[in-house]
Design a protein around this nucleic acid. Structure first.
Lengths: 252, 252
DNA sequence: TGCCGCCAACTGGTCCGACCAGTGGACTAG
DNA sequence: CTAGTCCACTGGTCGGACCAGTTGGCGGCA
Protein backbone atom coordinates (compact mmCIF):
# COMPACT_ATOMS: atom_id res chain seq x y z
CA UNK A 1 0.00 0.00 0.00
CA UNK A 2 1.62 3.27 -1.12
CA UNK A 3 1.27 6.41 0.90
CA UNK A 4 2.26 9.99 0.41
CA UNK A 5 1.06 13.48 -0.43
CA UNK A 6 -1.28 12.33 -3.23
CA UNK A 7 -0.07 14.68 -5.96
CA UNK A 8 -2.58 15.61 -8.62
CA UNK A 9 -1.64 15.74 -12.31
CA UNK A 10 -1.32 19.40 -13.14
CA UNK A 11 -2.55 20.66 -16.47
CA UNK A 12 -1.87 24.17 -17.70
CA UNK A 13 -4.69 26.58 -17.01
CA UNK A 14 -5.53 28.55 -20.09
CA UNK A 15 -6.22 32.27 -19.73
CA UNK A 16 -9.68 32.06 -21.24
CA UNK A 17 -10.57 29.35 -18.72
CA UNK A 18 -9.80 31.62 -15.83
CA UNK A 19 -12.02 34.27 -17.36
CA UNK A 20 -14.83 31.72 -17.62
CA UNK A 21 -14.28 30.74 -14.01
CA UNK A 22 -14.38 34.33 -12.82
CA UNK A 23 -17.66 34.97 -14.60
CA UNK A 24 -19.23 31.73 -13.37
CA UNK A 25 -18.05 32.37 -9.84
CA UNK A 26 -19.51 35.86 -9.93
CA UNK A 27 -22.74 34.30 -11.08
CA UNK A 28 -22.64 31.70 -8.30
CA UNK A 29 -21.95 34.36 -5.68
CA UNK A 30 -24.78 36.47 -6.97
CA UNK A 31 -22.56 39.35 -8.06
CA UNK A 32 -23.97 38.68 -11.51
CA UNK A 33 -27.63 37.88 -12.04
CA UNK A 34 -29.65 37.01 -15.14
CA UNK A 35 -30.65 40.09 -17.08
CA UNK A 36 -27.53 42.00 -16.18
CA UNK A 37 -24.98 42.86 -18.83
CA UNK A 38 -21.30 42.15 -19.15
CA UNK A 39 -18.96 44.95 -20.24
CA UNK A 40 -18.16 45.06 -23.94
CA UNK A 41 -15.43 42.82 -25.25
CA UNK A 42 -12.99 45.70 -25.53
CA UNK A 43 -13.77 46.72 -21.98
CA UNK A 44 -13.21 43.16 -20.78
CA UNK A 45 -9.86 43.21 -22.57
CA UNK A 46 -8.86 46.06 -20.30
CA UNK A 47 -10.32 44.55 -17.11
CA UNK A 48 -8.80 41.10 -17.58
CA UNK A 49 -5.59 42.41 -19.17
CA UNK A 50 -5.69 39.90 -22.00
CA UNK A 51 -6.16 40.13 -25.74
CA UNK A 52 -9.53 40.26 -27.38
CA UNK A 53 -9.03 36.80 -28.85
CA UNK A 54 -8.78 35.40 -25.35
CA UNK A 55 -11.82 37.30 -24.14
CA UNK A 56 -13.78 36.09 -27.14
CA UNK A 57 -12.83 32.45 -26.58
CA UNK A 58 -14.08 32.78 -23.01
CA UNK A 59 -17.31 34.36 -24.23
CA UNK A 60 -17.81 31.56 -26.75
CA UNK A 61 -17.52 29.00 -23.97
CA UNK A 62 -19.95 30.90 -21.77
CA UNK A 63 -22.31 31.32 -24.68
CA UNK A 64 -22.13 27.63 -25.53
CA UNK A 65 -22.95 26.83 -21.92
CA UNK A 66 -26.02 29.03 -22.07
CA UNK A 67 -24.62 31.53 -19.59
CA UNK A 68 -24.50 34.62 -21.80
CA UNK A 69 -25.60 35.74 -25.22
CA UNK A 70 -23.76 38.19 -27.45
CA UNK A 71 -25.56 40.26 -30.04
CA UNK A 72 -23.68 42.26 -32.65
CA UNK A 73 -24.02 46.00 -32.19
CA UNK A 74 -25.65 45.78 -28.78
CA UNK A 75 -24.26 48.77 -26.86
CA UNK A 76 -25.15 47.15 -23.54
CA UNK A 77 -22.78 44.26 -24.04
CA UNK A 78 -23.33 40.50 -23.62
CA UNK A 79 -26.43 39.55 -21.64
CA UNK A 80 -26.48 37.21 -18.65
CA UNK A 81 -29.09 34.58 -19.43
CA UNK A 82 -31.42 32.78 -17.04
CA UNK A 83 -30.91 29.03 -16.97
CA UNK A 84 -32.44 27.18 -19.86
CA UNK A 85 -32.85 23.52 -20.56
CA UNK A 86 -31.32 23.94 -23.97
CA UNK A 87 -27.82 23.19 -22.75
CA UNK A 88 -28.99 20.20 -20.73
CA UNK A 89 -30.86 18.85 -23.71
CA UNK A 90 -27.81 19.33 -25.92
CA UNK A 91 -25.82 17.11 -23.61
CA UNK A 92 -28.52 14.46 -23.54
CA UNK A 93 -28.85 14.43 -27.30
CA UNK A 94 -25.13 13.95 -27.53
CA UNK A 95 -25.31 11.21 -24.94
CA UNK A 96 -28.09 9.60 -26.93
CA UNK A 97 -26.10 9.40 -30.14
CA UNK A 98 -22.57 8.95 -28.92
CA UNK A 99 -23.23 6.50 -26.15
CA UNK A 100 -25.81 4.71 -28.22
CA UNK A 101 -28.65 5.29 -25.84
CA UNK A 102 -31.48 3.16 -27.07
CA UNK A 103 -34.99 4.37 -27.57
CA UNK A 104 -36.17 1.93 -24.93
CA UNK A 105 -33.86 3.49 -22.38
CA UNK A 106 -35.22 6.94 -23.11
CA UNK A 107 -38.81 5.75 -22.95
CA UNK A 108 -38.15 3.75 -19.81
CA UNK A 109 -36.71 6.85 -18.26
CA UNK A 110 -39.81 8.80 -19.13
CA UNK A 111 -42.06 6.09 -17.75
CA UNK A 112 -40.21 6.27 -14.47
CA UNK A 113 -40.12 10.04 -14.23
CA UNK A 114 -43.67 10.63 -15.29
CA UNK A 115 -45.00 7.84 -13.09
CA UNK A 116 -43.14 9.16 -10.07
CA UNK A 117 -44.27 12.72 -10.73
CA UNK A 118 -47.87 11.56 -10.93
CA UNK A 119 -47.52 9.56 -7.74
CA UNK A 120 -46.19 12.55 -5.85
CA UNK A 121 -48.67 14.90 -7.48
CA UNK A 122 -51.61 12.76 -6.33
CA UNK A 123 -50.53 13.47 -2.79
CA UNK A 124 -49.62 17.12 -2.98
CA UNK A 125 -52.21 18.42 -5.42
CA UNK A 126 -54.62 21.12 -4.33
CA UNK A 127 -58.20 21.47 -5.49
CA UNK A 128 -57.34 24.29 -7.89
CA UNK A 129 -54.56 22.20 -9.41
CA UNK A 130 -57.05 19.39 -9.89
CA UNK A 131 -59.24 21.84 -11.79
CA UNK A 132 -56.26 22.81 -13.93
CA UNK A 133 -55.70 19.17 -14.78
CA UNK A 134 -59.31 18.88 -15.90
CA UNK A 135 -58.81 21.88 -18.13
CA UNK A 136 -55.78 20.35 -19.82
CA UNK A 137 -57.89 17.27 -20.55
CA UNK A 138 -60.46 19.46 -22.29
CA UNK A 139 -57.68 21.12 -24.24
CA UNK A 140 -56.38 17.72 -25.34
CA UNK A 141 -59.82 16.65 -26.52
CA UNK A 142 -60.19 19.83 -28.54
CA UNK A 143 -56.72 19.44 -30.01
CA UNK A 144 -57.50 16.03 -31.44
CA UNK A 145 -59.73 17.69 -34.03
CA UNK A 146 -56.97 20.09 -35.06
CA UNK A 147 -53.85 18.09 -35.84
CA UNK A 148 -51.20 15.94 -34.25
CA UNK A 149 -48.93 18.85 -33.39
CA UNK A 150 -51.69 20.54 -31.43
CA UNK A 151 -52.34 17.33 -29.53
CA UNK A 152 -48.67 17.06 -28.76
CA UNK A 153 -48.68 20.56 -27.31
CA UNK A 154 -51.71 19.83 -25.16
CA UNK A 155 -50.09 16.61 -23.99
CA UNK A 156 -46.94 18.55 -23.15
CA UNK A 157 -49.01 21.02 -21.12
CA UNK A 158 -50.52 18.13 -19.17
CA UNK A 159 -47.17 16.63 -18.24
CA UNK A 160 -45.67 20.00 -17.42
CA UNK A 161 -48.56 20.64 -15.06
CA UNK A 162 -48.05 17.25 -13.44
CA UNK A 163 -44.37 17.98 -12.96
CA UNK A 164 -45.19 21.37 -11.46
CA UNK A 165 -47.67 19.85 -9.02
CA UNK A 166 -45.00 17.36 -7.97
CA UNK A 167 -43.01 20.36 -6.69
CA UNK A 168 -39.80 19.07 -8.24
CA UNK A 169 -38.21 21.22 -10.92
CA UNK A 170 -35.62 18.57 -11.67
CA UNK A 171 -38.30 16.07 -12.62
CA UNK A 172 -39.92 18.71 -14.74
CA UNK A 173 -36.70 19.58 -16.52
CA UNK A 174 -35.63 16.00 -17.13
CA UNK A 175 -39.07 15.12 -18.36
CA UNK A 176 -39.10 17.90 -20.89
CA UNK A 177 -35.57 17.26 -22.03
CA UNK A 178 -36.03 13.55 -22.53
CA UNK A 179 -39.41 14.09 -24.11
CA UNK A 180 -37.78 16.43 -26.60
CA UNK A 181 -35.08 13.89 -27.38
CA UNK A 182 -37.59 11.09 -27.87
CA UNK A 183 -39.76 13.19 -30.13
CA UNK A 184 -36.77 14.29 -32.17
CA UNK A 185 -36.06 10.62 -32.80
CA UNK A 186 -39.51 9.37 -33.75
CA UNK A 187 -41.87 12.31 -34.15
CA UNK A 188 -42.04 11.81 -37.89
CA UNK A 189 -42.96 8.16 -37.49
CA UNK A 190 -45.76 9.01 -35.07
CA UNK A 191 -47.10 11.80 -37.24
CA UNK A 192 -47.37 9.41 -40.18
CA UNK A 193 -49.05 6.65 -38.23
CA UNK A 194 -52.21 5.66 -40.10
CA UNK A 195 -54.31 5.41 -36.97
CA UNK A 196 -53.02 8.52 -35.28
CA UNK A 197 -56.51 9.69 -34.37
CA UNK A 198 -57.25 6.42 -32.60
CA UNK A 199 -53.94 6.68 -30.76
CA UNK A 200 -54.75 10.18 -29.62
CA UNK A 201 -58.20 9.15 -28.40
CA UNK A 202 -56.80 6.25 -26.45
CA UNK A 203 -54.12 8.42 -24.97
CA UNK A 204 -56.76 10.94 -23.94
CA UNK A 205 -58.77 8.28 -22.14
CA UNK A 206 -55.68 7.10 -20.32
CA UNK A 207 -54.96 10.63 -19.21
CA UNK A 208 -58.50 10.96 -17.94
CA UNK A 209 -58.07 7.75 -15.95
CA UNK A 210 -54.90 9.16 -14.47
CA UNK A 211 -56.68 12.32 -13.36
CA UNK A 212 -59.44 10.24 -11.80
CA UNK A 213 -56.91 8.24 -9.84
CA UNK A 214 -55.21 11.43 -8.73
CA UNK A 215 -58.53 12.83 -7.56
CA UNK A 216 -59.13 9.82 -5.33
CA UNK A 217 -55.58 10.05 -4.04
CA UNK A 218 -54.64 6.67 -5.44
CA UNK A 219 -51.17 7.65 -6.53
CA UNK A 220 -49.99 4.11 -7.07
CA UNK A 221 -52.78 3.33 -9.51
CA UNK A 222 -52.33 6.67 -11.26
CA UNK A 223 -48.66 5.99 -11.77
CA UNK A 224 -49.33 2.50 -13.12
CA UNK A 225 -51.89 3.79 -15.61
CA UNK A 226 -49.50 6.50 -16.75
CA UNK A 227 -46.68 4.04 -17.32
CA UNK A 228 -49.01 1.66 -19.12
CA UNK A 229 -50.17 4.50 -21.33
CA UNK A 230 -46.69 5.54 -22.26
CA UNK A 231 -45.77 1.95 -22.97
CA UNK A 232 -48.74 1.48 -25.28
CA UNK A 233 -48.00 4.77 -26.96
CA UNK A 234 -44.36 4.13 -27.74
CA UNK A 235 -43.84 0.37 -27.56
CA UNK A 236 -44.48 -0.04 -31.28
CA UNK A 237 -41.29 1.82 -32.05
CA UNK A 238 -39.15 -0.27 -29.71
CA UNK A 239 -37.52 -3.50 -30.88
CA UNK A 240 -39.06 -6.60 -29.32
CA UNK A 241 -35.77 -7.48 -27.67
CA UNK A 242 -35.85 -4.28 -25.64
CA UNK A 243 -39.50 -4.35 -24.65
CA UNK A 244 -38.88 -6.68 -21.74
CA UNK A 245 -37.09 -3.96 -19.77
CA UNK A 246 -40.04 -1.66 -20.32
CA UNK A 247 -42.57 -4.27 -19.23
CA UNK A 248 -40.64 -4.59 -15.99
CA UNK A 249 -41.68 -1.02 -15.27
CA UNK A 250 -45.40 -1.68 -15.55
CA UNK A 251 -45.68 -4.45 -12.99
CA UNK A 252 -47.72 -3.92 -9.88
CA UNK B 1 -56.82 32.96 -37.40
CA UNK B 2 -53.77 33.93 -39.43
CA UNK B 3 -52.40 31.70 -42.12
CA UNK B 4 -49.37 31.79 -44.33
CA UNK B 5 -45.91 30.41 -44.93
CA UNK B 6 -44.88 30.37 -41.21
CA UNK B 7 -41.68 32.41 -41.46
CA UNK B 8 -39.10 31.81 -38.78
CA UNK B 9 -37.17 34.64 -37.13
CA UNK B 10 -33.74 34.51 -38.72
CA UNK B 11 -30.68 35.15 -36.63
CA UNK B 12 -27.24 35.46 -38.17
CA UNK B 13 -25.30 32.23 -38.19
CA UNK B 14 -21.80 32.79 -36.99
CA UNK B 15 -18.97 31.12 -38.89
CA UNK B 16 -17.63 29.31 -35.83
CA UNK B 17 -21.10 27.88 -35.22
CA UNK B 18 -21.15 26.28 -38.61
CA UNK B 19 -17.80 24.71 -37.91
CA UNK B 20 -19.15 23.32 -34.65
CA UNK B 21 -22.16 21.96 -36.49
CA UNK B 22 -20.05 20.29 -39.13
CA UNK B 23 -17.91 18.55 -36.53
CA UNK B 24 -20.91 17.47 -34.45
CA UNK B 25 -22.72 16.22 -37.52
CA UNK B 26 -19.67 14.24 -38.58
CA UNK B 27 -19.66 12.77 -35.11
CA UNK B 28 -23.35 11.93 -35.30
CA UNK B 29 -22.94 10.31 -38.70
CA UNK B 30 -20.02 8.26 -37.47
CA UNK B 31 -17.50 9.89 -39.78
CA UNK B 32 -15.73 10.92 -36.60
CA UNK B 33 -15.41 8.55 -33.67
CA UNK B 34 -13.88 8.94 -30.20
CA UNK B 35 -10.13 8.47 -30.26
CA UNK B 36 -9.73 9.91 -33.71
CA UNK B 37 -7.92 13.20 -34.23
CA UNK B 38 -8.94 16.44 -35.83
CA UNK B 39 -6.51 18.16 -38.19
CA UNK B 40 -4.36 20.85 -36.65
CA UNK B 41 -5.82 24.33 -36.25
CA UNK B 42 -3.83 25.65 -39.18
CA UNK B 43 -5.02 22.77 -41.31
CA UNK B 44 -8.60 23.43 -40.30
CA UNK B 45 -8.08 27.05 -41.31
CA UNK B 46 -7.40 25.82 -44.83
CA UNK B 47 -10.23 23.26 -44.90
CA UNK B 48 -12.92 25.59 -43.57
CA UNK B 49 -11.51 28.66 -45.34
CA UNK B 50 -11.76 30.83 -42.24
CA UNK B 51 -9.27 32.52 -39.98
CA UNK B 52 -7.57 30.79 -37.14
CA UNK B 53 -9.47 32.88 -34.59
CA UNK B 54 -12.71 31.47 -35.94
CA UNK B 55 -11.40 27.92 -35.88
CA UNK B 56 -10.23 28.39 -32.33
CA UNK B 57 -13.57 29.76 -31.15
CA UNK B 58 -15.23 26.69 -32.62
CA UNK B 59 -12.70 24.43 -30.90
CA UNK B 60 -13.30 26.19 -27.58
CA UNK B 61 -17.02 25.51 -27.89
CA UNK B 62 -16.42 21.88 -28.77
CA UNK B 63 -13.94 21.56 -25.93
CA UNK B 64 -16.36 23.13 -23.46
CA UNK B 65 -19.00 20.65 -24.59
CA UNK B 66 -16.65 17.76 -23.92
CA UNK B 67 -16.40 16.81 -27.58
CA UNK B 68 -12.69 17.37 -28.15
CA UNK B 69 -9.56 18.18 -26.18
CA UNK B 70 -6.65 20.25 -27.41
CA UNK B 71 -3.15 19.79 -26.04
CA UNK B 72 -0.37 22.23 -26.83
CA UNK B 73 2.33 20.77 -28.99
CA UNK B 74 0.45 17.60 -29.84
CA UNK B 75 1.38 16.83 -33.45
CA UNK B 76 -1.70 14.66 -33.86
CA UNK B 77 -4.09 17.54 -33.36
CA UNK B 78 -7.19 17.81 -31.14
CA UNK B 79 -8.58 14.51 -29.88
CA UNK B 80 -12.18 13.38 -30.21
CA UNK B 81 -13.33 12.45 -26.73
CA UNK B 82 -15.77 9.72 -25.67
CA UNK B 83 -18.86 11.01 -23.92
CA UNK B 84 -18.36 11.91 -20.31
CA UNK B 85 -20.82 12.85 -17.63
CA UNK B 86 -18.73 15.85 -16.74
CA UNK B 87 -20.58 18.14 -19.11
CA UNK B 88 -23.96 16.87 -17.98
CA UNK B 89 -22.99 17.36 -14.38
CA UNK B 90 -21.76 20.86 -15.12
CA UNK B 91 -25.18 21.78 -16.45
CA UNK B 92 -26.92 20.29 -13.44
CA UNK B 93 -24.66 22.08 -11.00
CA UNK B 94 -25.44 25.29 -12.79
CA UNK B 95 -29.12 24.47 -12.68
CA UNK B 96 -28.79 23.75 -8.99
CA UNK B 97 -27.27 27.09 -8.14
CA UNK B 98 -28.83 29.43 -10.65
CA UNK B 99 -32.35 28.13 -10.59
CA UNK B 100 -32.16 27.49 -6.89
CA UNK B 101 -32.78 23.81 -7.19
CA UNK B 102 -33.38 22.71 -3.64
CA UNK B 103 -31.64 19.85 -1.94
CA UNK B 104 -34.98 18.13 -1.47
CA UNK B 105 -35.57 18.14 -5.20
CA UNK B 106 -32.22 16.53 -5.84
CA UNK B 107 -32.76 13.92 -3.16
CA UNK B 108 -36.30 13.27 -4.34
CA UNK B 109 -34.94 12.73 -7.80
CA UNK B 110 -32.45 10.20 -6.52
CA UNK B 111 -35.11 8.41 -4.51
CA UNK B 112 -37.16 8.04 -7.66
CA UNK B 113 -34.33 6.98 -9.92
CA UNK B 114 -32.73 4.58 -7.51
CA UNK B 115 -36.06 3.08 -6.51
CA UNK B 116 -37.07 2.55 -10.11
CA UNK B 117 -33.70 1.06 -11.00
CA UNK B 118 -34.00 -1.39 -8.12
CA UNK B 119 -37.53 -2.33 -9.14
CA UNK B 120 -36.44 -3.10 -12.68
CA UNK B 121 -33.29 -4.81 -11.52
CA UNK B 122 -35.25 -7.17 -9.30
CA UNK B 123 -36.93 -8.44 -12.44
CA UNK B 124 -34.04 -8.60 -14.84
CA UNK B 125 -31.21 -9.65 -12.55
CA UNK B 126 -29.37 -12.89 -13.24
CA UNK B 127 -27.91 -15.21 -10.63
CA UNK B 128 -24.38 -13.97 -11.24
CA UNK B 129 -25.52 -10.37 -10.86
CA UNK B 130 -27.12 -11.34 -7.57
CA UNK B 131 -23.76 -12.68 -6.48
CA UNK B 132 -22.12 -9.42 -7.49
CA UNK B 133 -24.59 -7.54 -5.34
CA UNK B 134 -23.66 -9.71 -2.38
CA UNK B 135 -20.03 -8.89 -2.97
CA UNK B 136 -20.68 -5.16 -2.92
CA UNK B 137 -22.40 -5.63 0.44
CA UNK B 138 -19.29 -7.29 1.79
CA UNK B 139 -17.19 -4.46 0.41
CA UNK B 140 -19.43 -1.92 2.14
CA UNK B 141 -19.11 -3.71 5.46
CA UNK B 142 -15.34 -3.77 5.15
CA UNK B 143 -15.26 -0.09 4.18
CA UNK B 144 -17.03 0.98 7.36
CA UNK B 145 -13.87 0.17 9.31
CA UNK B 146 -11.74 2.29 6.99
CA UNK B 147 -13.31 5.71 6.69
CA UNK B 148 -16.31 7.53 5.36
CA UNK B 149 -14.82 8.10 1.92
CA UNK B 150 -14.25 4.38 1.47
CA UNK B 151 -17.83 3.67 2.48
CA UNK B 152 -19.01 6.25 -0.03
CA UNK B 153 -17.08 4.51 -2.77
CA UNK B 154 -18.51 1.12 -1.88
CA UNK B 155 -21.97 2.63 -1.77
CA UNK B 156 -21.37 4.15 -5.18
CA UNK B 157 -20.32 0.76 -6.53
CA UNK B 158 -23.55 -0.74 -5.22
CA UNK B 159 -25.75 1.80 -6.93
CA UNK B 160 -23.77 1.63 -10.14
CA UNK B 161 -24.25 -2.10 -10.19
CA UNK B 162 -27.97 -1.68 -9.62
CA UNK B 163 -28.20 0.78 -12.48
CA UNK B 164 -26.27 -1.59 -14.72
CA UNK B 165 -28.57 -4.48 -13.88
CA UNK B 166 -31.53 -2.28 -14.72
CA UNK B 167 -30.20 -2.16 -18.29
CA UNK B 168 -30.73 1.56 -18.57
CA UNK B 169 -27.68 3.72 -19.09
CA UNK B 170 -29.69 6.90 -18.70
CA UNK B 171 -30.73 5.94 -15.20
CA UNK B 172 -27.15 5.10 -14.44
CA UNK B 173 -25.85 8.40 -15.75
CA UNK B 174 -28.48 10.54 -14.08
CA UNK B 175 -27.98 8.72 -10.83
CA UNK B 176 -24.27 9.33 -10.84
CA UNK B 177 -24.59 12.93 -11.90
CA UNK B 178 -27.19 13.83 -9.30
CA UNK B 179 -25.36 11.88 -6.67
CA UNK B 180 -22.27 13.92 -7.43
CA UNK B 181 -24.20 17.16 -7.17
CA UNK B 182 -25.78 16.16 -3.87
CA UNK B 183 -22.47 15.12 -2.38
CA UNK B 184 -20.82 18.33 -3.54
CA UNK B 185 -23.48 20.20 -1.58
CA UNK B 186 -23.43 18.30 1.70
CA UNK B 187 -20.51 15.88 1.74
CA UNK B 188 -18.69 17.94 4.33
CA UNK B 189 -21.70 17.94 6.62
CA UNK B 190 -22.06 14.18 6.36
CA UNK B 191 -18.38 13.56 6.94
CA UNK B 192 -18.53 15.56 10.17
CA UNK B 193 -21.64 13.88 11.49
CA UNK B 194 -20.89 12.67 15.01
CA UNK B 195 -22.65 9.34 14.55
CA UNK B 196 -21.34 8.62 11.07
CA UNK B 197 -20.48 5.03 11.96
CA UNK B 198 -24.02 4.34 13.14
CA UNK B 199 -25.34 5.92 9.95
CA UNK B 200 -23.12 3.71 7.83
CA UNK B 201 -24.18 0.59 9.71
CA UNK B 202 -27.85 1.41 9.31
CA UNK B 203 -27.35 2.13 5.64
CA UNK B 204 -25.60 -1.19 5.22
CA UNK B 205 -28.50 -3.06 6.80
CA UNK B 206 -30.94 -1.29 4.53
CA UNK B 207 -28.88 -2.25 1.51
CA UNK B 208 -28.88 -5.86 2.65
CA UNK B 209 -32.66 -5.74 2.96
CA UNK B 210 -32.84 -4.41 -0.56
CA UNK B 211 -30.74 -7.26 -1.88
CA UNK B 212 -32.95 -9.75 -0.05
CA UNK B 213 -36.04 -8.28 -1.64
CA UNK B 214 -34.38 -8.38 -5.04
CA UNK B 215 -33.50 -12.03 -4.53
CA UNK B 216 -37.11 -12.93 -3.85
CA UNK B 217 -38.20 -10.88 -6.84
CA UNK B 218 -40.20 -8.46 -4.72
CA UNK B 219 -39.27 -5.36 -6.68
CA UNK B 220 -41.91 -3.18 -5.11
CA UNK B 221 -40.70 -3.86 -1.59
CA UNK B 222 -37.09 -3.44 -2.64
CA UNK B 223 -37.82 -0.05 -4.13
CA UNK B 224 -39.69 1.08 -1.02
CA UNK B 225 -36.86 0.05 1.25
CA UNK B 226 -34.37 1.85 -0.93
CA UNK B 227 -36.39 5.05 -0.95
CA UNK B 228 -36.87 4.83 2.82
CA UNK B 229 -33.16 4.34 3.27
CA UNK B 230 -32.26 7.34 1.19
CA UNK B 231 -34.81 9.42 3.03
CA UNK B 232 -33.41 8.43 6.42
CA UNK B 233 -29.90 9.06 5.19
CA UNK B 234 -30.47 12.55 3.85
CA UNK B 235 -33.63 13.88 5.48
CA UNK B 236 -31.70 15.48 8.29
CA UNK B 237 -30.19 17.94 5.85
CA UNK B 238 -33.50 18.95 4.33
CA UNK B 239 -35.61 21.75 5.84
CA UNK B 240 -38.79 20.52 7.49
CA UNK B 241 -40.91 22.47 5.04
CA UNK B 242 -39.56 20.43 2.15
CA UNK B 243 -39.70 17.00 3.76
CA UNK B 244 -43.36 16.54 2.91
CA UNK B 245 -42.60 16.15 -0.81
CA UNK B 246 -40.04 13.50 0.02
CA UNK B 247 -42.42 11.59 2.29
CA UNK B 248 -44.84 11.43 -0.59
CA UNK B 249 -42.28 9.26 -2.34
CA UNK B 250 -42.13 6.64 0.39
CA UNK B 251 -45.82 5.75 0.55
CA UNK B 252 -46.92 2.31 -0.36
C1' DT C 1 -42.97 72.53 -30.37
C1' DG C 2 -42.82 68.02 -31.90
C1' DC C 3 -41.68 64.56 -35.11
C1' DC C 4 -38.65 62.30 -38.46
C1' DG C 5 -34.53 61.02 -40.67
C1' DC C 6 -29.69 61.10 -40.77
C1' DC C 7 -25.14 60.21 -38.81
C1' DA C 8 -21.40 59.01 -35.81
C1' DA C 9 -19.91 56.22 -32.15
C1' DC C 10 -20.17 52.28 -30.63
C1' DT C 11 -20.98 46.91 -30.82
C1' DG C 12 -19.60 42.07 -32.04
C1' DG C 13 -17.70 38.99 -36.07
C1' DT C 14 -13.85 38.00 -38.73
C1' DC C 15 -9.33 38.23 -40.58
C1' DC C 16 -4.21 38.62 -40.58
C1' DG C 17 0.45 38.20 -38.98
C1' DA C 18 3.37 37.46 -35.29
C1' DC C 19 5.66 35.40 -31.21
C1' DC C 20 6.17 32.02 -27.53
C1' DA C 21 6.66 27.64 -24.95
C1' DG C 22 6.03 23.29 -25.47
C1' DT C 23 5.95 18.45 -27.93
C1' DG C 24 7.61 14.59 -30.45
C1' DG C 25 9.80 12.44 -34.16
C1' DA C 26 13.82 12.25 -37.00
C1' DC C 27 18.38 12.43 -37.30
C1' DT C 28 23.04 11.96 -35.72
C1' DA C 29 26.95 10.79 -32.82
C1' DG C 30 28.56 7.47 -29.75
C1' DC D 1 21.83 -0.31 -31.53
C1' DT D 2 21.25 3.18 -28.26
C1' DA D 3 21.22 7.91 -26.45
C1' DG D 4 21.23 12.54 -27.14
C1' DT D 5 20.28 16.61 -29.92
C1' DC D 6 17.65 19.33 -32.84
C1' DC D 7 13.98 21.24 -35.47
C1' DA D 8 9.51 21.36 -37.49
C1' DC D 9 5.17 21.81 -35.83
C1' DT D 10 1.68 22.20 -32.21
C1' DG D 11 -1.58 25.11 -29.55
C1' DG D 12 -1.91 29.66 -26.62
C1' DT D 13 -1.75 34.45 -26.79
C1' DC D 14 -1.20 38.93 -28.59
C1' DG D 15 -2.19 43.32 -31.25
C1' DG D 16 -4.07 45.58 -34.96
C1' DA D 17 -7.29 45.99 -38.63
C1' DC D 18 -11.70 46.03 -41.23
C1' DC D 19 -16.64 45.20 -41.76
C1' DA D 20 -21.67 45.18 -40.93
C1' DG D 21 -25.02 46.05 -37.82
C1' DT D 22 -27.27 48.54 -33.90
C1' DT D 23 -28.34 52.61 -31.29
C1' DG D 24 -29.06 56.95 -29.57
C1' DG D 25 -28.56 61.67 -30.19
C1' DC D 26 -28.41 65.57 -33.07
C1' DG D 27 -30.25 68.61 -36.41
C1' DG D 28 -33.57 69.88 -39.82
C1' DC D 29 -38.25 69.93 -41.20
C1' DA D 30 -43.29 70.38 -40.57
Amino acid sequence: MTKGPQFQPVQPVRAYQRIVEQVEDALARGDLTPGQRLPSERELVAQFAVSRSTVREALRVLESNGVVRSRPGDPNGPEILPFSQAALRKQMVRLARVDELTLSELIGFRMIMDGAAIQVASRLRTETELDELEHTLVAMRDAIDVDFAAFGEADLAFHELIARISRNALIQTCNEVVRGVVLSLISDKIAHAPNSRALMLESLHHHADVVDAIRTGNGHAAARIARQNMFDYYAGYVPDSEQETLRALIED
